[in-house]
């Protein structure tokens, strides 16, 4: 199935990952953690994740299933200024 990936306010984070706004192919019913693995970001803890605008805490990434057409956003834990 296809999932859109957005990197919010960050550069393409690692080689092998998608470009910003790119649609990637993941297995049907893939978890967020599996999508991150396919983006070569599986061990990265320095990003926060949203699925269709809703936060997915790091400990719930393995249990949160993606659906066709979902948007997966990754962003750094910035603080205010």
């Amino acid at each position: 199935m296809k999932v859109k990936v957005e990197f919010i306010a960050i550069e393409r984070p690692k080689s092998g990952s998608a470009d910003n706004g790119e649609t990637i192919e993941v297995a049907n019913g893939a978890a967020v953690s599996e999508a991150l693995l396919s983006l070569n970001l599986g061990r990265t803890t320095s990003f926060l994740t949203l699925v269709n605008g809703d936060p997915v805490p790091p400990e719930e990434r393995a249990n949160t299933r993606l659906k066709e057409g979902d948007t997966l956003c990754l962003f750094r834990p910035l603080k205010g200024g």
Partner: peptide
């Protein structure tokens, strides 16, 4: 730090895309 790199490049304005996405 990549966070430092982002602050130097984009300033704190990076936050606007984050709060927009987050609502």
């Amino acid at each position: 730090s990549e966070v430092r790199d982002d602050l130097a490049k984009n300033g704190t304005q990076s936050m606007m895309d984050v709060t927009q996405a987050f609502g």
